[in-house]
Amino acid sequence: MYDLILFLIFLLLGYVFGQRAEKRHFRSIIEREKQLRDILVFSERRIPDAEQLDGSLVCGSVVISVDFFKRFVAGLRSLVGGRVSAYESLLERARREAILRMKEEARRGGAQSVWNTRLETASIYKGAQQSIGAVEVLAYGTAVKPR
């Protein structure tokens, strides 16, 4: 019985705080994306006018945890199958945050654009109960600045 009560409390806490954290995070992402709009990001490998530029590798990484509520909903969803909308926003947040951090590194290096951007998504934890559900995203690319 105590287990059930604890479970419901976690579910409620996860929902309230998880939703708040997500909203806040999205606001901050949108805000910082506006500030970093002058750094252009492309996934092409060919850089125009490469002869007059200097390039270097830039990376951005982030680890974001799933809240209890979302994990439970996703667990339920895995019984019936279908779109796990609970995790979609999580991955979206993580990818955009990683790209933002990559852009920040590019700005620190004085670059104006990032080319051949790649994203690598992973997790330290897989399956097993009591484990931590988290998504890790690593964004990297070649930042260039005029010579």
Binding site: Y15, Q19, F26, I30, R37, L40, V41, F42, P48, F69, K70, F72, V73, L76, R77, V80, R83, S85, A86, E88, S89, E92, S113
Partner: peptide, 25 residues
């Protein structure tokens, strides 16, 4: 070469998580 602003919410389902939860439960 430019980066126009991409509208929000294309990659995220508009489903409210609570609705999803209630339906599933």
């Amino acid at each position: 070469y430019e980066n126009p602003l991409i509208p929000e919410g294309i990659n995220v389902s508009p489903t409210h998580p609570l609705k999803d939860f209630i339906l599933l439960v």
